[in-house]
């Protein structure tokens, strides 16, 4: 039973997260995780789940986490690409769960490119 407008707002905010993923806004930051066979074999699933979890924990509303196919850097899997709208993408290699979380905290949240993990094609 909802007894007040405050309680209604609480429910709204509790479930807002669920709907966040369904908003197709074009000016969001996109975090792409390579999930081809090589990526999955190298642990990309742990990476993507860690990234999704960290985005939630940090309450980042302007980013979506999307999996993508092979990016051609099989030696450096799992790979993660961060795309800020209007900026050129940054590609990271050998991203395990821990690095994934750090990329979310430092790059996605604070805009700091972690240059030592950046892959140079």
């Amino acid at each position: 039973m909802i007894k007040s407008i405050e309680e209604l707002k609480q429910i709204r905010d509790k479930y807002k997260d669920v709907l966040q993923n369904r908003e197709a806004e074009e000016n969001k930051i996109r975090i792409l995780v390579g999930m081809a066979t090589c990526g999955i074999a190298a642990g990309a699933r742990d990476t993507i789940n860690a990234i999704v979890d960290e985005v939630h924990k940090e309450n980042i509303n302007n980013a979506v986490v999307v999996q993508t196919g092979c990016m051609g850097f099989c030696y450096a899997e799992p790979t993660v690409e961060v795309r800020f709208p209007g900026k050129s993408p940054v590609l990271y290699g050998k991203v395990d769960a821990e690095r994934g979380r750090e990329i979310v905290r430092r790059h996605v949240k604070n805009g700091e490119v972690i240059s030592e993990w950046v892959l140079k094609g």
């Binding site: 669920v18 993923n21 369904r22 993507i48 789940n49 999704v52 979890d53 939630h56 999996q67």
Partner: peptide, 8 residues
């Protein structure tokens, strides 16, 4: 584990 993808 957080939800990362939805199929509508």
């Amino acid at each position: 584990m957080p939800l990362r993808m939805e199929l509508l």
